[in-house]
């Protein structure tokens, strides 16, 4: 009797179990998704009475004409392109090294994972201090190589770079753990067969391990891209509540936050949110399409 029949009673019982979760999901998850799309079309909206007196495309017209929105989009793309490839490749290299050692492996894993568990706010403050142009650790370190102090956080040319470095640092541990999980899922026999066939370490890595790891690489890349598009906390703290010098670190989520929280432009903020969603969706779909050709599932 594998498949018990669906009856009215069994349905009632099931919904009793589901109801606590459903109530909160309906109010704070399903409804806001629909409402957010609706909000993006509200051009005259009284938030106190929840009355909509005009709808249209004005919010979208506004953001597409807004130079700040363009800047936020470009900055977000620069950020994602700056962070993801390095973060993924570095994590893969470190995971491959960690996977091959036994002594101290779990100790090292613990250290690499440390930034993942720590508060972004607190650790961004620490980085703000490290990046300090006068007394910061980084500039004094670079001083040993006769590099002149760089104004990391106040120079528009360096601000995004500083943000990218910190984000890579923070994301490494999480990606390493996922890569290690992927590696331990690979059947060791493949490697052994290649070894018997006379493949050297590098060839086994290049033609066996890395292709077999590709589903995990793909997953980590997609995940990193998505979280890259949502960067906010780091920016807020690193640049003291501002989107960087000359808005050089203004990203899409920061734009959304500013429109909503500082300027109370709910419709515009919602429209920015919808565009963010569509961009993430498009990029994810492109990645899935690309993966069909290049990811090897066994």
């Amino acid at each position: 009797m594998k498949n018990k029949k669906i009856t009215l009673k069994s349905t009632l019982v099931a919904y009793m179990y589901l109801s606590p979760m459903l109530i909160f999901t309906l109010i704070f998850n399903f409804y806001p998704i629909i409402k957010s799309f609706a909000l993006s079309f509200y051009t005259k909206y009284n938030f106190y009475t929840d009355q909509v007196s005009a709808i249209g495309l004005d919010n979208f017209k506004y953001i597409f004409a807004d130079p700040d929105f363009k800047k936020a989009t470009i900055n977000t793309l620069i950020f994602v392109v700056g962070v993801v490839p390095i973060a993924v490749i570095l994590a893969m290299i470190l995971a491959l090294l960690l996977y091959r050692i036994k002594f101290l492996a779990s100790f090292l894993k613990t250290i690499y994972f440390l930034p993942f568990v720590t508060s972004t706010v607190a650790i961004s403050l620490v980085w703000q201090w490290i990046y300090n142009d006068q007394y910061g650790l980084l500039n004094s370190f670079l001083g040993y190589f006769n590099i002149k102090p760089i104004n990391w956080l106040n120079d528009p040319h360096w601000a995004m770079f500083a943000l990218i470095i910190m984000t890579i640092w923070k994301s490494l541990g999480f990606n390493i753990i996922l890569f290690l999980a992927g590696l331990s899922n690979i059947d060791k026999r493949y490697d052994r067969v290649a070894q018997i066939d006379g493949a050297n370490t590098w060839q086994r890595l290049r033609f066996v391990t890395i292709p077999l790891l590709s589903p995990m690489t793909f997953l980590i890349t997609v995940n990193s891209v998505i979280s890259g598009f949502k960067v906010f906390d780091e920016i807020y703290i690193l640049f003291g509540g501002n989107p960087g010098p000359g808005s050089s670190a203004l990203t899409l989520v920061f734009y959304l936050y500013r429109a909503f929280y500082t300027e109370s432009q709910y419709g515009i903020a919602a429209a920015a949110g919808v565009v963010l969603f569509l961009i993430i969706l498009a990029v994810t779909l492109i990645q899935f399409w690309y993966s069909k050709k290049h990811v090897h599932y066994v």
Partner: peptide, 21 residues
């Protein structure tokens, strides 16, 4: 499937309506 589908939506989108609610 609907539940799984909502995982695709970035949480930032929910902030405005949830604040209003």
């Amino acid at each position: 499937l609907i539940c799984i589908g909502t995982m695709m939506i970035p949480g930032e989108i929910l902030i405005i309506p949830n604040f209003v609610t």
